[in-house]
Simulated assay, not measured.
Amino acid sequence: MEPNDTISGAPAEPPATAPAEPPAASVRPRPRGRTTLLIAAAALLGISGGTAIGYGIQAQRPPSQLPALSQTELAYPAKPLPADKVPAPLPASQDHQVATDGDLRKLIIDRPAGWSENKDADWLDDGWMSVGDLARDFTHDDSTYEYFLESDIRRIAGASWKKGAHREAAIRLVQFSSGADTAAAGFADGQRSYMPEARGAGNEGDAVKGSGEGRYYVYGVDRKPGYLPFYRARAVMHRGDIMIEVNLYDNRPISKKDIRTLAERQLERV
């Protein structure tokens, strides 16, 4: 996101006797500029003439034969393969597009043992979340909503569970239109970018195994007078055209193992 030294000295004294200047009438000025103009004009004519002659000679020559264009063999067979040699399609368990084009809610992991459905999660409607509700989670203006629309967001599936009196879990799968893998990656990168700051978790987090750039974070405790302490952990990942977010909330400390286990299970499911 430098002074100059000045050197001073006395000028040299003129000679004692200076030669007398010739009378002005005896000096006849020589015309200037004419010779220079003639030389420049000759050079220009030489260049123009040489160019014209060169084009003329080239035009009279027979055209040179161009080398043959090289072309690799076609990457696809000239004829359809026989039925017995056509490769079988991938099973649904290995075809990522088949899985993600189906009911996105089925890609959310099963509720862990000891957890129950969180009926207070008003951001969910039959396992779906609206784009407007997602945008309001980040800002209360229209900029985020417009960002999602411009990124060609497709749909959002979610789940919310409770365990005991205070522990809650929330999972969101944010899917963008087919072929928009960069949108899911960009959304996840944007979320991770501020997590080391005070407005995020305040730390670099830890890598989610097998996720590439995915990370999970455990926040510092948030204490306010008159309220129970608030603890939070979060994981942000993406796979293909889906951004994956896992959150844990409690009034008791949350271990790294707790958030890591949920994050790895959810990533494996997607």
Rank of each mutant, 00 (worst) to 15 (best):
H166V: 13
D133K: 07
G226M: 04
D189I: 10
A16N: 11
D141E: 00
L38Y: 08
Y76N: 13
R111E: 06
S143N: 09
D152T: 07
A40N: 07
W161N: 01
I7N: 09
S211F: 02
L124Y: 01
G56F: 08
V208D: 03
T144S: 08
I53K: 11
L262S: 06
V98Y: 11
D141Y: 00
D152H: 14
D152K: 14
P77C: 09
L267E: 03
F138N: 06
G164F: 06
E150S: 11
P91K: 02
T36E: 09
P87M: 07
P77I: 02
L104H: 01
A12F: 11
L124D: 00
S70A: 14
I156A: 00
A169Q: 12
Q65K: 12
Q71D: 09
I171Y: 02
R234D: 14
I259H: 05
P82T: 06
S255D: 06
A24H: 07
A185H: 07
M129S: 00
Y227D: 15
I7W: 10
R30L: 14
L37E: 03
K79E: 15
T17Q: 15
G132R: 14
G179E: 08
D95G: 04
G114D: 02
L149D: 09
M237C: 04
E21C: 07
G158E: 00
D222P: 05
Y216A: 10
K257N: 14
G200R: 01
A24T: 12
E168L: 13
A157H: 01
D141T: 02
A10R: 13
Y76S: 15
Q94L: 12
